[in-house]
Design a protein around this nucleic acid. Structure first.
Lengths: 142, 142
DNA sequence: GCACTCCTGACCAAGAAGGTCAGGAAAGTC
DNA sequence: GACTTTCCTGACCTTCTTGGTCAGGAGTGC
């Protein structure tokens, strides 16, 4: 029920990439690390995971760096969290709909499913573009 | 962003206690463990934590056992999760309002706070009485 | 050929997760 | 008072996760 450093770092780095999207040039890992105060080598691993999940692209060498694979308003925070932390709101590492509850706890399944739905209602709605502009969806405001 | 076995077990055991609240006698740990298929010795540790948080009471000896410290409709799932897992939706082990975000991630704080709020909107609303009866609050339904 | 930057895997220390084990301390029973 | 029952507590254990670091390899551009 907590947000890991990795997920936090990933979203922060992605926000920087979103903001840099208008410039045509890729952003170096080192610049991302400095902008968000993240250990560089750790960040590189995170960016690699984001790349494997098709969220980020990269090029090596001089003039190399990272950039978003899609427009910032098409990438949600949920995607990024899932890329580095795995599925959201699993119970004992299995999805809540696969668990069989007995006795007086029978309805607990519905509660965990509701938990997941409520998390999604925030994370799936906020895009990187929203995050950078600060104009979060109204549903998130309350 | 996941629910631990401990939290799941704790809520399930508490649901059994809620259902047994009409009987005046305490419920033995062994009966709880069997009803919910939880390893007994592990469950005892969990029940002890719930006791320390004032959610459960216990008596030793023959005729001993556990019972809820308060009526089932005054105990929320959030309380139980917090008792065994600690604060809900912390980021890197600190509350989201204490983190300072820089640069283009400045508004990320609001997102994490919204995440916590949405979790609470489910967990704080569902009581053990709701859970046992299966009549979850309407806000949880969607 | 060289510098630059990403890519990858190995490693590592500390802590959490998910338990088990052994014994002690209250409460009730005979 | 002895005995049983049940909770109480701390120590321990194995495996996995977290949050990194280190060293080197592989593209890319000049």
């Amino acid at each position: 029920m907590r947000v890991s450093a990795k997920a936090d770092y990933a979203v922060r780095a992605a926000a920087e990439l979103a903001a840099a999207q208008k410039e045509e040039a890729p952003v170096k890992g080192e610049r991302l690390a400095e902008a968000q105060d993240i250990p560089l080598q750790f960040l590189e691993h995170i960016l690699l995971e984001l790349k494997h999940h098709g969220i980020v692209r990269a090029r090596r060498g001089a003039k190399g760096g990272y950039w978003l694979a899609r427009p910032a308003d098409e990438v949600t925070v949920a995607e990024i969290v899932r890329a580095v932390e795995g599925p959201i709101a699993h119970v004992q590492s299995t999805p809540p709909e696969d668990i069989e509850y007995r006795g007086n706890a029978a309805h607990l399944q519905e509660v965990w499913i509701a938990v997941r739905a409520s998390l999604r209602s925030v994370l799936e709605e906020v895009t990187l573009a929203d995050l950078v502009s600060g104009e979060l969806p109204t549903a998130v405001g309350e």
